[in-house]
């Protein structure tokens, strides 16, 4: 479930990046690399788990599934926070700098 949610996040962020490319003003490229990187790593994890459990891997207990979904959503939230911090630090539109200059 975590893998599935992360793959969806990776696909959605790639589509959003493509829509804004090549300007990439919102720095969404970072989200693509992050979610794709994590998806590949969890895919390997899934292969090893499948090797251990067999077909049982595809029929998880409801409680495990719920926990994995909760984890997946938390991972996406964490990824979005990392992106937001990166965006505000890089400030490609200069909005933060302008706002700070206005205060002075």
């Amino acid at each position: 479930m975590t893998l599935l949610i992360t793959v969806f996040a990776a696909v959605i962020s790639t589509v959003i990046w493509y829509k804004g490319a090549p300007e990439n003003e919102m720095k969404t490229g970072i989200l693509c690399w992050m979610f794709w990187g994590a998806s590949i790593m969890w895919f390997v994890d899934a292969i090893f788990e499948y090797k251990e459990l067999g077909a049982e891997y595809f029929t998880p207990a409801p409680l495990d599934m719920l926990n994995d979904a909760f984890l997946g959503l938390s991972v996406v939230a964490l990824g979005l926070i990392v992106w937001l911090v990166y965006l505000l630090i890089k400030d490609p539109k200069g909005a933060v700098r302008k706002a700070l200059a206005k205060k002075k």
């Binding site: 970072i30 690399w33 992050m34 990187g37 590949i40 790593m41 984890l71 991972v75």
Partner: peptide
Amino acid sequence: GWLNKMLWLGSFLLAFEHLW
């Protein structure tokens, strides 16, 4: 840099999962 981003950020999310 693309490889770096995938490795650093991907393992960061994985580290979070391990913490979880």
